[in-house]
Write a protein that binds this DNA or RNA. Structure first.
Length: 481
RNA sequence: GGUGCGGUGGCGAAGUGGCUAACGCCGCGGUCUGCAAAACCGCUAUUCGCCGGUUCGAGUCCGGCCCGCACCUCCA
């Protein structure tokens, strides 16, 4: 069974057939680095990172390119506000971006090209477009002539005629048509600029992705992804440029993720209803946020709420507890995952889990259904562990562990759910020592059947955010925030 | 106005023609526990926005309607 994905270009699910067998080339539009990212920005990161991981799991080699827009009006404006050099500001937020991405378990792309490093590529493309009369220069600016590209509107399913009618688009500057868009913008005083055949300026909107995608992936690469709001005009314009430039199809499959909403409205800067990822990370571990983002199908809207995150935290904690329990039973043993041996219901469950998981993700990357398969495995495993005490099932347990790690860690990237950041400060060490001391006192109290004392200690610790559990193997505690 | 997306139990969320509508969270009952917690077992939608239609059979296809959202201008 092939991997199937919904292609915005054709509005249907299609089997993924890479242009080059065994190799998938994908490009995802990255952030404009003028501030910290919010949860809405985080969704495509997690979604496409997971998709990339899945493709690798399915045996493809994946070349994954994600750009940084480090030259842009918003960056220039923000830099001016803060009295910083735009390049310095952009670099700062690129660094911040990597911190956020890492917290979410998003792996670095194969290449992270930046606009500022590809001016020559962009200029070369624009020059060619001008030569071929797909674009025209006017007073230091260069515009793309939309009416020269017959396929304009094929991605967003709108016709240039319609856009001209209903739109409030007006002819600005020296554009010949309201639909034309800037490939190169003349520098205004004080703005960063690069030399070009049309005078000092900088790349306009959309040019970067087209030029950099072609540079690293070549024309006709496999998957181009991004948020749904990029369909028009961003991706439409990329197609217009790239295909006019190369004369060949730009990207073969277009994937777009749905929005994060707040009270049903799109999370956005302008509405002021956004939550910075940094803020949410203060309350929930990255893996929980990742789990939460993957618990809705990527094309559907996800209405953000804290209760949902709480639910994700509990669900994911179950996965982790099961894994912890398996580790404990298996001891330090690497535990070869037995593939033979007596037929064991759990072993069948492992096989069924893989099968269901893969079928779900093959079907346009249905993460909620895939996660349901893992929940089934977790439940069956816990059920088995609750009944069995002996250690003669090591091979089977190791097989479960391997499956959980493979699907939950390697593919979904939500494990391990790091308990609490390993406290390394002096204060944290003292706290840990004190808690251990209190629990020793409590154990003594319990031995003397002094339940009042034991419960008081447990309750007071709970009040401090420390959860205490008595298990057959001894008392455990954990931070519960 | 144009183009799309969505409306499934208390909440979240799969399911796009066929056994009793996955799964998670919450809640309730039970097992375990000194009591809890965790874990496990069980229960919780005669019903899938509304109205028609097609079909032996529809949440699932067709038509109409209502509601919400998004894009058409920077936006993941």
């Amino acid at each position: 069974m092939p991997v199937t994905i919904y292609n915005t270009l054709t509005r249907r699910k299609e089997a993924l057939v890479p242009g080059e067998p065994g190799q998938v080339r994908m490009y995802v539009c990255g952030p404009t680095t003028y501030n910290l990212i919010h949860l809405g920005n985080a969704r495509p990161l997690v979604v496409f990172d997971t998709f990339r991981r899945y493709l690798e799991y399915r045996g493809y080699r994946v070349t994954y390119v994600q750009n940084f827009t480090d030259i842009d009006d918003k960056i220039i404006a923000r830099a001016a506000e803060e009295g910083l050099d735009p390049g310095v500001l952009a670099d700062k937020y690129i660094a911040e971006y990597f911190l956020d991405a890492a917290a979410l378990g998003v792996r670095p792309a194969t290449v992270h090209p930046q606009v500022s490093q590809h001016i020559a590529d962009i200029v070369a493309m624009i020059r060619s477009l001008v030569d071929k009369e797909y674009a025209y220069a006017a007073d230091g600016n260069v515009y793309f002539a939309v009416d020269r590209f017959a396929g304009y509107g094929k991605l967003s399913r709108r016709s240039p005629e319609e856009m001209l009618v209903g739109a409030r688009a007006e002819i600005e500057g020296d554009k010949r048509s309201p639909l034309d868009f800037a490939l190169w913008k003349k520098a205004k005083p004080g703005e960063p600029w690069w030399e070009s055949p049309w005078g000092p300026g900088r790349p306009g909107w959309h040019s970067e992705c087209a030029a950099m995608a072609l540079r690293y992936l070549g024309s006709g690469f496999d998957i181009h992804g991004g948020g749904y709001d990029l369909v028009f005009p961003h991706h439409e314009n990329e197609i217009a440029q790239a295909e006019s430039y190369t004369g060949q199809p730009f990207a073969r499959y277009w994937m777009h993720n749905g929005f994060i909403t707040v009270d049903q409205e799109k999370m956005s800067k302008s509405l002021g209803n956004f939550f910075l990822l940094r803020e949410i990370l203060r309350r929930f571990p990255g893996p929980v946020i990742r789990f939460y983002l993957l618990s809705t199908h990527y094309r559907h809207p996800l209405d953000f709420d804290l209760e949902g995150l709480e639910g994700s935290a509990r669900g994911l904690a179950r996965w982790q507890k099961t894994l912890d329990e398996l580790e404990q039973r298996l001891g330090g043993r690497a535990g070869e995952a037995a593939t033979s041996g007596p037929a064991h219901p759990l072993r069948e469950q492992v096989a069924a889990t893989r099968e269901t998981f893969v079928a779900a993700l093959d079907d346009d990357f249905n993460t909620p259904a895939a996660m349901a398969a893992l929940f089934a495995l977790v439940r069956e495993t816990n059920s088995f562990l609750a009944r069995s005490q002996t250690g003669d099932d090591a091979g089977t347990l190791a097989a479960v562990r391997a499956c959980l790690k493979e699907l939950g860690e390697q593919v979904l990237g939500v494990l391990p759910l790091a308990g609490q950041a390993a406290p390394s400060s002096r204060e944290a060490q003292v706290v840990t020592g004190l808690v251990d001391l209190l629990l020793e006192v409590r154990s003594l109290a319990r031995q003397h059947r002094d339940w009042a004392m034991a419960d008081m200690i447990r309750d007071r610790l709970a009040g401090l955010g420390i959860g205490v559990e008595d298990t057959p193997g001894g008392t455990r505690w954990e931070w519960r925030g």
